[in-house]
Design a protein around this nucleic acid. Sequence first.
RNA 1: GUGGCCGUAGCUCAGUUGGUUAGAGCGCCAGGUUGUGAUCCUGGAUGUCGGGGGUUCGAAUCCCCUCGGUCACCCCA
Length: 442
Amino acid sequence: MARPTFQALPGTRDLFSPDTDRMRELVSVFAEQAATAGFALVVPPMFEDVGVFRRLGEASDVVSKELYDFHDKGGRHIALRPEQTASVCRMFAENRPLVPWKAWYAGPNFRHDKPQKGRYRQFDQVGAEVIGSHDPDVDIELIALAARFYARIGLHRVRLMVNSLGDAADRPRYLSALRAHFEADLDALSEQSRATLLVNPLRVLDSKRPGDAALIEAAPVLLDYISDEAAAAFARVQAGLAALDVDFDVSPRLVRGLDYYTRTTFEFAADGLDAAQNAVGGGGRYDGLIADLGGGEEPGVGFALGVDRTLLACDAEEAFPAPSTGVQVWVIDTVGALDGLQIADEIRRAGVRCDRSFDGRSMKAQMKAADRSGATLAVIIGADEASNATASIRPLRGGGDQYQVPRADLLSALRATLGADADHGSAISSPTSTTTRETLES
RNA sequence: GUGGCCGUAGCUCAGUUGGUUAGAGCGCCAGGUUGUGAUCCUGGAUGUCGGGGGUUCGAAUCCCCUCGGUCACCCCA
């Protein structure tokens, strides 16, 4: 075998079945949940003017270090999207749909950081945003949507943390208190945190360095500094989540990585994952972001869930196995006329998943391929069948004898046999599910 | 961006203090079986030992560089 000339770039992956089946199923479950809650799909471009993303926070690594940016042939300064909220807000500002505007999305994002487990340079997210309402009930419904989604895919060991960052006007008072607190005991702070303190004091609270823990523990609490209105909204959010039986913890030190958040913020952590990548999703309000993008004073709130990490968390709980996507019928043709071609087409048009061998292989080889495919039935066209216009149907999974039917009755015979097998559950017990198990355990 | 560990067949791996033509299992292909898979038996194909350079009579093995993977820090989904 020749050595491949190229390989996938760092942080990018080639995904195959059954991982791809699982991913598609996950997105399709999310799509269904979102539609049920009145959200419509949007597809923003994968790249934008770099300015669209600058609003995420000049002090954040996502913008300052990890942007995939370049100049296009027209001299425009462009960046691959590191997330989709900013693009959705730009879409809103540009197209001005009726408010409240409820949009969901799914797709890849790009960040140039060093890959490790659960962290890729191209990674998928699903998410939902609501633009144009201040009502904290919207926050509640969004959080519930995410929580219900996790439950729906069978992921149970997920903790929801909520906090309120207050309004933009509350921020300076808190920041100065926070800064004063840390500066009073600067020596106790790690070097990295001291650097963070200069650019964004809020994110010092996010430090996981053990040495910083005590000082962070003693830091002023953001919730004590927020306006009465923001506090009332946060109280409503908590009451609403409780009313919906959505479990949560208030985490006064939860600050999110992107700078645009105001008021409600939340994060989902999967206990099945290591702390380094246990954040499987999160979001919050961003009441100033749309105005920053020239869209007027419209409030917004939303969340995004990491598809890869969610699936990783599912692995840890052995939840959400890959759906079976194998074929049901394999057509075996040893004659080499047009029968195999026509029969496969006929079966497919009837909506039955079907495949066949090529290259005129021996019957033995074709049978082997049929077995390997996981198909429930083989349809055999040999010399006999070709000469008397019949087809043989051979069950491949356990019971039943091979039998011949007139060619005209083939479809109904297949349907009858497949239906009977499905009742016994054998139609889905294919090698595909074995592979899935192995994947989950590895 | 920083650091630890790791790169041998499609996959999982073995390979002694450097020593002939680099191995095993699984998988794949063919035959045993003149139409019939999953079992069994027999045979077969596939490796610039990640890449480059160096040390040596001789390197998968030692050294340097590099590329990639992985994990942690950092950051975050």
